[in-house]
Design a protein around this nucleic acid. Structure first.
Lengths: 241, 241
DNA sequence: TAGCCTTATAACCAAACAGTTAATAAACGA
DNA sequence: TCGTTTATTAACTGTTTGGTTATAAGGCTA
């Protein structure tokens, strides 16, 4: 931990004795919420880049422009901090999910938008992918401990179930589709491609993160999900004869 | 590193002075290949369980029933060992892929078997998933360095392309499907579900690794891939009118 | 303005860490 | 059987690690 460059926030603190500053009201020197938030942000970046095992507590403190002691003061220990990062990350995605209005269009357009928005969210929040990979490596140990996350349930499964019902009633969607399986599949098509793009690009000698390839991927994902839903299951095809 | 219990392999070495043993010819006390292999196996388990950052060199040496120095002797350093583990892992999956005979059945059955065998391979080799996640966290750094892996190319893309051509000729598969996109999607449907099963099971309150759920998942994956391939793309549907 | 709780800092610590040294013994060819 | 090479071990090293101690100072309240 280098003591060299203090963050701009605290740059004024090095000054000899400004005593009772008027500016202190605007930007208080001691702000628990701001410090906590900056540690959480630095920790998110560090855990996302290096995983839980590779993350360094000293780097997080430095990245937060704060002190290692503060990290333990607010979060207990490294794993407590990791859990807090997961809680924040899940809270963010749940908030984004709640903003989605998928039920005000046709079932086809609703599903297509879900595919596209899932893709867009993963691109905009790459830390979500690596943090989740880390947590799964640890068999969801921290997630199981977190009451906060276990209480947040995703509204998307119910929305997807409603879209499926409407499409089936209209005769354009096949029957017998489990909404959770479908949701996992939509996530899978986007997540795996993005999370594993480095090894995939290397092995297949194709830059899968280029603009052209990314565009092709969304098209393929939508075609796959909607093609599946539009298709007739073998059983009812036999009956239809 | 505890020196307590030597592995059964080397248990005889502690004995005072058996001098020139006849059994030495059967199981030589010094066997470079055997030591190398046991270090590689222990390292695979350790990296798979803890990731590159969380893996401990001491634990690997102990798990191999060998010595830390041997690890550096054969593999240079921790990252060199990780690269060797990746090379072995890729070599194994490529060997398994080559045994697949997907072209001696109908296109539908060929694709279904590919889906099922991909699933079965990931279940039988869970270390493949976590090692790949680790390598992607490091942006495929080791994979890019490895000439050995870059030389192994998967025969599956070409096989899949041939299956697609046959299905299209028979009129049962849709046109305009990129074999690589399809291959990635098949892998995605299995990989994401298995790799993220801990967080998914926790969040959705459903044990996704139970026998019943696993069976349901393969059925869903097959239905999705085959349903997609059987469906008619919107463009040609318009033309077909 | 004195007192007190909260927020912050720097220096510190023991354990764990990746990697090394030096010495030794098996294996093997001459 | 001797000398060289190769495989192996235990003990060691300097550094990094997660976590702690001791102390100070901001800022609210009475």
């Amino acid at each position: 931990m280098q003591a060299g460059q203090p963050s701009s926030i605290r740059a004024t603190r090095g000054v000899r004795k400004p005593a009772k500053r008027v500016t202190a009201a605007v930007r208080p020197l001691r702000d628990a919420e701001r410090t906590r938030a900056s540690i959480l942000a630095a920790a998110t970046a560090e855990f996302a880049r290096h995983g839980l095992g590779g993350a360094r507590v000293d780097r997080i403190a430095e990245g937060a422009g704060s002190n290692k002691r503060m990290l333990y003061y607010y979060f207990g220990d490294k794993e407590g901090l990791f859990q807090a990062v997961l809680e924040q990350t899940y809270s963010d995605i749940r908030k984004a999910e709640q903003k989605l209005n998928l039920l005000d269009a046709s079932p086809e357009d609703g599903v297509r938008r879900l595919v596209e928005l899932t893709w867009a969210y993963y691109i905009a929040h790459p830390e979500f992918l690596t943090l989740l990979n880390s947590e799964n490596l640890h068999e969801a140990r921290h997630l199981k401990k977190s009451l906060r996350i276990r209480e947040m349930n995703s509204p998307l499964i119910e929305t997807l179930a409603e879209l499926l019902r409407r499409g089936q009633r209209a005769g354009t969607f096949r029957t017998g589709v489990d909404p959770l399986q479908l949701y996992i599949s939509i996530a899978a098509l986007a997540y795996f491609y993005l999370s594993n793009r480095h090894t995939l690009s290397t092995v297949f000698g194709r830059d899968l993160f280029s603009a052209a390839e990314r565009k092709a991927r969304v098209a393929h994902m939508s075609a796959m999900v909607l093609g599946f839903l539009a298709s007739v299951p073998p059983a009812s095809r036999r009956r239809a004869r």
